[in-house]
Design a protein around this nucleic acid. Structure first.
Length: 278
DNA sequence: TGGCAGGGGTTGA
DNA sequence: TCAACCCCTGCC
């Protein structure tokens, strides 16, 4: 079994099951089975070593996927004065940002609206089972475009099937639309993704954060709104409108605000007493 | 066991 | 600005 010595803490449960990716399951305690770049793999951490069972997967790809090369502490230096982030980081020091495959990430989040993590995971599993071939790979845009809306509804996508089918069709014809130049600012990249059906401000930013390594993408959903109100504007009835969180987060957290959000979000959602249904 | 409320958004009017 | 869109889960 290949192994990699870890130089940073790595918490596979919060990283893989926390809502960044939806193709992972804890198949036995501490052991997580899923896919990386089309390769099925089981991961586990033992004695500060990352172990995996698929020799076709290089250490480099794993490091890349789990952002093990990233110095999170340095990136989060501008947030040192924040009253909550140090607590969140301390609670989950091994939570890493993922670099998920852009297409799978986009498709997952198109399926995510008004869905809970467990349901999104079920949809991912059904899409793989119905359209992913013998390897159960995540189906390509071509495959989902060919399947069409009606077949996608069989995967319990509901109204989201229409959006996913339409986006798959566009990307099957124009795959280059997922290639986002590094020189584009995140705002421009988000607008670009929002041209696709079913992609709004929340989803574009999730994809930029979890698949493109845009650490300044700051997705705002009901949980984040709840968290920000509760922690930063306690007792205030009306605070900021959805669009205003962008500027506020920039001021509060700086250029790594997406990473700050990832930690705060996970900590807040899993804290005792949170209404979390996973 | 069955009914009900509500959930990690986007679209189009 | 707001209703409509589907379906699943938890709760009573």
């Amino acid at each position: 079994m290949p192994a990699l010595q870890l130089s940073v803490p790595l918490d596979l449960a919060s990283t893989l099951l926390g809502g960044q990716s939806f193709c992972w399951n804890e198949t036995s305690p501490g052991s997580f089975t899923g896919w990386i770049q089309g390769m099925p793999v089981t991961l586990m951490v033992k004695h500060r070593q990352l172990l995996w069972n698929n020799p076709l997967l290089s250490p480099f790809r794993l490091e890349q996927y789990l952002s093990l090369d990233l110095d999170l502490e340095s990136l989060l230096v501008p947030c040192r004065q924040d009253p909550w982030l140090p607590r969140a980081r301390e609670a989950f020091p091994g939570l890493r940002p993922l670099r998920e495959d852009p297409w799978e990430c986009l498709a997952n989040f198109i399926c995510s609206s008004l869905k809970q993590i467990v349901q999104i995971r079920q949809i991912n599993e059904r899409l793989r089972r119905f359209f992913g071939g013998p390897q159960r790979n995540f189906p390509s845009p071509q495959r989902l475009a060919k399947a069409g809306e009606k077949a996608l509804r069989q995967c319990q996508l509901g109204y989201r099937a229409k959006h996913l089918a339409a986006t798959a069709k566009i990307l099957a014809q124009e795959p280059q639309r997922l290639q986002i130049p590094d020189r584009w600012p995140t705002e421009q990249a988000a607008e670009h993704l929002e041209q696709l059906p079913g992609v709004g401000p929340k989803i574009s930013r999730c994809v930029l954060l979890y698949a493109y390594g845009r650490w300044d993408a700051f997705p705002v959903d009901v949980w984040v709104t709840r968290l920000l109100h509760h922690l930063y504007f306690p007792g205030r009835r009306r605070t900021l409108r959805p669009g205003d969180w962008e500027a506020w987060s920039q001021q509060q957290f700086g250029p790594a605000r997406g990473l700050a959000q990832l930690s705060l979000f996970h900590w807040y959602r899993t804290r005792p007493g949170a209404r979390s249904r996973r």
